[in-house]
Amino acid sequence: MRSAPAAPTSPRPNSRGDLSGIGLALLSAAASGTLGVWGKLALTLQLSTPTLLSWRFGLTALLLLALGSFRVPGRERLILLLLGLLYAATTAAYFTALTRISASTSALLVYVAPAFVILYGALSRTRPTRGQLGALACTLLGLSVVIGLPGAADRDVFGLLLGGLSGALYGAYLFASDRLAVRSSPLTVTAHVTLVSAVTFAAMGALGGNLGVPASLPQWGLVTLMVLIPTLVALPALAGAVQRIGAARVSLLASTDPLWAVLFATVFLGEVLGGAQVLGGLLILAGAACAQRPSRSARVRPLQLTSPARTAAECSDPRGS
């Protein structure tokens, strides 16, 4: 049941919280920026996407189960499992796009997410700040350059659409996390997201007949690296950042992810950057910087799915999101 809207509050300055939130968002972006490299290496090692992702998420979920990160009330568990479905869908769209277009462009297309976070906020009656609108303009302009002037490896229309879909789904994940998982610890969020993702990709692999077990040391090494870097580092950092500075700011900071992805793809995969990718990347970086300008106006929290008791608590806990 939807509760009544929280009362308008004025954000309180919290420089330490802002700095830690920004740092966590950038750490998550850099760790996630390695995904394209792992995805392309998996193709080289003949490791199917369902096998790679089901083992990546499954091992992570088992580790977090051992740490007790699944101990939550039933209502909270249901919410976190639904968030896991959004994240699994995002990952599926991204890795499918990765098989059709370059790692650099796949990563850039995920970051239509800021546009969707702001759109979802507007639909729930949250007015975007000037900084968010400026950042959004830079981000969309940068992405338009990349999509409008594709390189030779990025002319697959279906691959480009899948990349855009992954951005829309990722925006929904960030937006929902900010509204529904604000009181859940980062490791608890990660535990449920990885559990749902493991089950999803195992089912996809079983239905498609391409689910297996890594059969060589390089394949196991790749799975291990994916568990450590873009999962156990990126996901808790992302959840922690959303709790500190809100989904809109995090999604715009996370748009530096494709810059990391381009860097890693250039260094490790030998992908050659085109002028459109360079210009688009610089505009995306400018959007992330613009998003950090503080707003002088009060912002109203949107409707939240929570209990009346927790709504009262949140009224005294403005996070500026």
Rank of each mutant, 00 (worst) to 15 (best):
T306F: 02
A261D: 04
V233H: 14
L238P: 01
T188G: 06
V196I: 11
A237Y: 04
F201I: 04
L228T: 06
V272T: 15
G246K: 06
L217H: 06
L222N: 07
T194S: 13
L303N: 14
L273A: 14
A203K: 11
R296V: 00
L305A: 11
L222R: 07
V213T: 07
S197F: 03
G221I: 00
A261V: 12
R249G: 00
V233G: 14
L222G: 05
L211C: 08
L195F: 02
P236I: 10
P302H: 08
P218S: 12
A241I: 05
T231W: 10
G287Q: 06
L228V: 13
A254Q: 14
L195Y: 00
H192I: 03
S216C: 05
V189N: 15
L253Q: 07
L303Y: 07
Q292V: 00
V189H: 05
R296C: 00
L238K: 14
L303G: 10
R244L: 08
V193F: 06
G209H: 12
L238N: 15
S295E: 15
G280F: 05
Q219P: 00
L217Q: 13
S255I: 00
V272G: 13
L235N: 05
Q219K: 09
L285Y: 04
Q277R: 15
S251K: 06
I229R: 14
A234K: 05
V267F: 02
Q219A: 10
V227T: 07
S295D: 14
Q219R: 10
L259H: 10
T266C: 04
V272D: 15
F264G: 01
S255G: 10
S297Y: 09
W260M: 06
V189R: 11
L273F: 04
M226T: 13
L305Y: 09
S297R: 15
G205V: 02
S295T: 15
S216W: 02
S297I: 01
T256R: 10
F201G: 05
G287N: 06
L228M: 01
R301Y: 08
G280P: 05
V262Y: 09
